[in-house]
């Protein structure tokens, strides 16, 4: 698998770094990591960056993750890019909302690197 470009959207800079580390631990080679602290920053980042994978929190200030996922569908260069939610929100209704909005995976915090591997690798077409 080629190196990938990832966008990580989370209001915690610590969590963004943990997510990046988890991707590397999953054996995913990262060409570039773009970070954003909320959905609005994430959308702005997509205007100037083409990415292969988006990982996104739900509870964030300014624009939450569900609204971000809905709006990603309108960004031409991001259409078809897999989005995985990584969030403390564990309810079925949040999962349904996220998947309906266009997310392809859902990981509940706290999470292990193995969970990231399990949810992300199939979306990138890599065999486990």
């Amino acid at each position: 698998m080629d190196k990938i470009r990832a966008l990580i959207v989370d209001d915690s800079s610590v969590m963004r770094k943990i997510v990046e580390r988890s991707l590397r631990q999953a054996g995913i080679e990262l060409e570039k990591v773009v970070e954003a602290a909320n959905g609005a920053e994430g959308l702005a980042a997509l205007q100037s960056n083409v990415v292969d994978l988006i990982l996104c929190d739900i509870n964030m200030p300014v624009m939450d993750g569900l609204e971000f996922v809905r709006q990603v569908a309108t960004v031409e260069t991001a259409k078809g890019v897999p989005i995985v939610m990584i969030t403390t929100e564990g309810s079925e209704s949040h999962v349904v909302q996220a998947l309906s909005a266009g997310a392809r995976g859902y990981i509940r915090k706290p999470f292990t690197p193995d969970q990231v591997k399990e949810h992300v690798l199939p979306l990138l077409g890599k065999k486990r």
Binding site: S12, M60, T88
Partner: peptide
Amino acid sequence: EICNMITGNFKNKLAGTDEQCMLSV
């Protein structure tokens, strides 16, 4: 972030509460 995860994890363990409870940042 630890506080956030503890709150979410606790909420997710309470039957009947998870679906109807929102968390702040």
